[in-house]
Amino acid sequence: MARRARIIVVGCSTFGAGVALALSAGGGDVIAVDMQEDALDELGPDFDGETFTGDGRSAQALEECGVREATHLVAATGDDATNLLIAELASEVFGVRHVLPLVEDEALVQILEDRGISPICPHRVCEEEFFSLTGLARGGEGR
């Protein structure tokens, strides 16, 4: 029998909260982590996961969330450097196989990709969706 996904979402920004809600609705074992308890409250009654108030940059906090059993970790704070740190900690220290940090800075995106971590880069996602929806040709060198 396939192992049920255990996902830690650090940062309940609009993106983080949306991902946590969708994953829990999809049957994932989700733990939402944020330093602000009111951010966790915003998940609302439809959230069928666990919440943890704490600093996702802390190895101890991640351990308390069960990071060693996590199949996925989404780092979705509002700060690229924080997401990079959380991703590295989860991947390198705790061995989480699927680490997905939210990153805006193209230089950090490249660093993560070079380390085998797949970042979620909103402007890249929007750009890809734009060209997919419009069918227009992309010029330049691309990626």
Score class of each variant (00 low, 15 high):
1 M>L: 07
1 M>Y: 02
2 A>H: 11
4 R>D: 03
5 A>D: 14
5 A>F: 01
8 I>N: 10
10 V>Q: 03
10 V>K: 01
11 G>I: 12
12 C>S: 15
12 C>R: 08
12 C>H: 10
18 G>E: 10
18 G>L: 01
19 V>E: 00
19 V>Q: 00
19 V>Y: 06
20 A>W: 04
20 A>Y: 00
21 L>P: 02
21 L>G: 05
22 A>H: 07
22 A>N: 11
22 A>V: 07
23 L>P: 03
24 S>C: 06
24 S>F: 02
24 S>V: 06
24 S>H: 07
24 S>K: 01
25 A>P: 08
25 A>D: 13
25 A>I: 06
26 G>P: 07
28 G>V: 03
29 D>T: 07
29 D>R: 08
31 I>E: 02
31 I>H: 04
32 A>R: 02
33 V>K: 09
33 V>D: 00
33 V>F: 08
33 V>T: 03
35 M>H: 06
35 M>Y: 03
35 M>T: 14
36 Q>K: 12
36 Q>A: 11
37 E>G: 13
39 A>D: 09
40 L>F: 00
44 G>T: 10
45 P>L: 10
45 P>W: 04
45 P>S: 14
46 D>T: 13
47 F>G: 04
47 F>W: 08
48 D>K: 15
48 D>R: 15
49 G>H: 04
50 E>I: 04
51 T>S: 05
51 T>I: 13
53 T>D: 10
54 G>V: 09
54 G>N: 02
61 A>E: 13
63 E>V: 14
64 E>F: 11
65 C>H: 10
65 C>G: 07
66 G>T: 12
67 V>T: 03
67 V>K: 07
67 V>E: 09
68 R>Y: 10
68 R>M: 05
69 E>S: 14
70 A>S: 09
71 T>F: 05
72 H>Y: 02
73 L>Q: 04
73 L>D: 09
75 A>R: 00
78 G>W: 02
78 G>Q: 11
79 D>M: 08
79 D>K: 09
79 D>Y: 06
79 D>H: 13
80 D>Q: 09
82 T>G: 07
83 N>S: 00
87 A>V: 04
88 E>N: 01
88 E>Y: 03
89 L>H: 08
89 L>K: 06
90 A>V: 00
91 S>W: 08
92 E>S: 05
93 V>Y: 02
94 F>K: 01
96 V>W: 02
98 H>D: 15
99 V>D: 07
99 V>R: 06
100 L>W: 08
100 L>C: 08
102 L>K: 11
102 L>S: 02
102 L>E: 03
102 L>Y: 03
102 L>Q: 00
105 D>W: 09
105 D>Y: 06
107 A>K: 11
108 L>G: 01
108 L>N: 10
109 V>G: 07
111 I>V: 15
113 E>M: 04
114 D>F: 07
115 R>Q: 14
116 G>W: 02
117 I>V: 14
117 I>A: 09
117 I>K: 07
118 S>Q: 12
118 S>L: 11
119 P>Q: 02
120 I>L: 15
121 C>A: 15
121 C>H: 14
121 C>Q: 10
123 H>D: 13
124 R>H: 14
127 E>S: 14
129 E>H: 11
130 F>K: 05
130 F>C: 09
130 F>N: 05
131 F>S: 09
133 L>Q: 14
134 T>E: 03
135 G>L: 13
135 G>C: 13
136 L>A: 15
139 G>R: 11
139 G>C: 04
141 E>F: 11
142 G>P: 00
142 G>L: 14
